[in-house]
Each structure stands twice: as structure tokens, then as C-alpha cells.
């Protein structure tokens, strides 16, 4: 765990730096692959930046809308740089809506556009897990296995590393298969979702659920399983349709 790196008088927060670096690497890779495959790399960077800007703005507006009373006589704090004044779920909704709007405005509201984002998301996921490992977020359940780590007052599963390794395997598989897949548009994104939801379903068993339970089941695990199953069904239907078209 290394939340802050002290360099002389400077205290650098590692998790946001890892996320920024991951974002930069991921968007660079996605643009490079898009131009290699003959697609327009501009649309990737355009949608990415619109999503980030709209997400941040939306997250702040959503926070203000939900806590309007708290800003009485304090309207200058609307512009505060403190990230605690962001409503993440509101930001995600606005970012998704803005991305969709930009994609459709550029006549790219099709499934193949989603495939072009796979390298971006697949490379950004490891950055999230490294950031979590650095900050101690998403920590594991207690264990006495030899590879346990000491964190938050107990010996625990290094679950962030399980996720990290899995995400790197997924990234590698998708990279190896990217030029050989004759699959229909959107299938690369579906593969990414299936693999990711699959490993989250498996390894969230070793993540401390905190209070996030539905009865005695982990909310994260149930959600990942539902996403996995739905994505599998869509992929199967898509493949089935393709096979039918090919045979007729």
C-alpha cells in the first residue's frame, strides 16, 4: 500500500496519478489501434474527452442538485476543486449520454465503435486495480494463506492483485485475438464484458463486501454474474444470427 509518495517537500497521491497515467496509455493505445485498423482515431479521442468533461461536469451538477440546501450562502464552493463534491453515479450517466450523443452525431452509433473502445477500457482496468492496491481500497477478506498481505489491521487476500492479473490476462487475450477474429461487430466488446464479469464473479468471493450484501450474497458478485449471463446470451444470439446468415 502506497497512498502518498513523499518526494522531499512534495506529497504525491499515487492512486490518482496511476489513474491519469492509465488513462493516457489507454487512450493512446486505442487511437493507435483505431488508425491501424483504418478507423478514424479522432472519434475515439473526441468521445473519450467529451465523456471525461461531461462526466466531471455532470458529477458536480448532480452533487449540487442532490444537496442544494448545503450551498446556501456558499455558491463559490460550486467551483471547489475538492473531488468529494462529485456524485459518481450522476457523472457516469451524463458521461454515457454525452458519449452516445457525440457518437450518433458522427454517424457512428453502431456496434463496431464499441469494439474500438475495448483497448482503452481493457488497459484502463489494470490501472484501476493498481490504484486500489496503492490506496488500500477494495481490500480482501481475512486469510492465512502464504501470499496474504497485512492491510487494515489484518492478514488479507491481495484481491486487488487477483483482479490485476486477471485484467492483464484479459487484455493479452483480446490483443492476441484482435486481428484474427472474424466475429460480427460488437463481439470484441462482448468478449471483454464476458471475461471481465467472469473474473469479477470468481474473485469477488475474496473481497471484503463491507455492508454491500443482498441477504448473505455479495452485491458485486451478483451484479457481475448478471452482466456475465446477459452478455453470454447476447453473444450467443449474435453468433447464431451470423451462422444463419452465412448458411443461407
Amino acid at each position: 500500500m502506497l497512498p502518498i509518495l513523499d518526494l522531499g517537500p512534495l506529497s504525491l497521491p499515487i492512486p490518482p496519478l496511476v489513474l491519469l497515467l492509465g488513462f493516457w496509455l489507454a487512450s493512446t493505445l486505442a487511437e493507435k489501434q483505431a488508425s491501424k485498423s483504418g478507423a478514424d482515431p479522432e472519434i475515439i479521442s473526441k468521445i473519450t474527452w467529451v465523456a471525461v468533461a461531461a462526466g466531471l461536469l455532470g458529477a458536480r451538477l448532480s452533487f449540487i442538485a442532490r444537496n442544494m440546501y448545503a450551498f446556501r450562502g456558499q455558491w463559490a464552493s460550486v467551483l471547489s476543486l475538492n473531488p468529494a463534491l462529485l456524485d459518481i453515479s450522476g457523472g457516469l450517466v451524463i458521461a454515457a449520454a454525452a458519449s452516445f450523443y457525440v457518437a450518433s452525431k458522427n454517424q457512428r452509433g453502431d456496434w463496431s465503435l464499441l469494439d474500438q473502445f475495448v483497448p482503452f477500457i481493457a488497459l484502463f482496468m489494470p490501472a484501476i486495480y493498481i490504484a486500489n492496491f496503492a490506496s488500500g481500497a477494495g481490500y480482501g477478506t481475512m486469510t492465512d494463506l502464504p501470499w496474504r498481505i497485512e492491510i487494515w489491521g489484518a492478514q488479507r487476500h491481495p484481491v486487488q492483485l487477483y483482479y490485476l492479473l486477471s485484467s492483464l490476462v484479459v487484455f493479452t487475450i483480446l490483443e492476441i485475438r484482435k486481428d484474427t477474429d472474424p466475429n460480427p461487430p460488437g463481439s470484441r466488446m462482448l468478449s471483454f464484458i464476458i471475461y471481465t464479469a467472469g473474473y469479477i464473479t470468481i474473485f469477488s468471493r475474496f473481497q471484503d463486501p463491507g455492508g454491500n450484501l443482498v441477504g448473505s450474497f455479495r452485491t458485486l458478485q451478483l451484479t457481475a454474474w448478471a452482466v456475465f449471463t446477459i452478455a453470454m446470451l447476447i453473444a450467443y444470439q449474435q453468433q447464431h444470427r451470423e451462422d444463419k446468415n452465412a448458411s443461407s
Partner: peptide, 30 residues
């Protein structure tokens, strides 16, 4: 595959005895 994962979820459920309020002191949420 979804059925195998469903069995894994069943195996992973948190027993009521483990759903106790925070008992360890540490400078972190929860």
C-alpha cells in the same frame, strides 16, 4: 458457465456470523 458461476456464488455467501459490525480499528471507512 452461468450455472457453474451460480454455484460459486452460493459457495461464496457470507454467513450471518461474519456479518458483524466493524470490530477492527483501522483508519479507513467501515
Amino acid at each position: 458457465l452461468p450455472l457453474i458461476l451460480l454455484a460459486w456464488i452460493w459457495f461464496s455467501r457470507v454467513p450471518p456470523s461474519a456479518q458483524v459490525p466493524a470490530s477492527i480499528a483501522a483508519p479507513r471507512e467501515d
